[in-house]
Write a protein that binds this DNA or RNA. Structure first.
Lengths: 114, 114
DNA sequence: GAAACGCTTGGCAATATTGCCAAGCGAAAA
DNA sequence: TTTTCGCTTGGCAATATTGCCAAGCGTTTC
């Protein structure tokens, strides 16, 4: 792998890493319906204010969300909406896995090859 | 957030986490052109055989790839090809970020709002 | 059978991530 | 100006990830 390519893969992995956390993923999906302030997130999940803020910072650094300070509040919004599409793909991975797991445990009604 | 939802987000985050590593991302993209054996990966990147094997195990556990042992070799292939689409979205995040960075450093030829 | 091959697993030290508490900080309200 | 509000940052301990070496294990070749 060339050094240049390596950098590219590191950059892409960093974006994915930002999304690879339950809370952050939840935040991103939540932003589908429009911008939210930090306090809204803090209210909805049971976590310290600082924790929420740090998660949002991670998403911001990754370039996934953007912030906008208006008055007392800071509003976060999705910067690259296509991330939502690909979360659907992740769900496809999960359902493929679930189906397989069912067939392994013999709980499925899978068709037998004779 | 409901406990059931929480589980769901944890599961999705786990899939993303599996992809969130430069080497594993590289492997997944490399599998676009068809199945590869462990030795091919080990040869292409400069890493221990065991390291390669462990990365592939992570991808397998996540349900992203599948393995097939034939003769001496184990062949890995993509199980859910849609992951490739969403890597393109990650690249969109990167290019959005790059563009912005250019404009911040004044190196761009961005159109000025007057 | 013995040796070689291709790969996986155990173990472990180095490193990174996470989430809480406490402290800081700018804008707005008093 | 002082206080409050909304949020960010520093610090830190608990936890997870990473990648190497060494050892194990099933096939195939000799």
């Amino acid at each position: 792998m060339k050094a240049e390519d390596k950098k590219f893969f590191e950059a892409k992995a960093a974006v994915l890493k930002a999304l690879a956390h339950p809370t952050r993923l939840w935040m991103v999906e939540h932003l589908e319906s429009g911008e939210k302030c930090v306090c809204e997130f803090a209210e909805l999940i049971d976590a310290d204010f600082s924790t929420v803020s740090k998660h949002l910072t991670v998403l911001k650094q990754a370039g996934i969300v953007q912030d906008d300070k208006r008055g007392k509040q800071v509003y976060y919004s999705l910067k690259v909406p296509c991330v939502l599409n690909f979360i659907h793909c992740v769900e496809a991975v999960l359902s493929a896995r679930a189906k397989e797991h069912l067939s392994m445990t013999g709980l499925s009604d899978r068709p037998q090859n004779k």
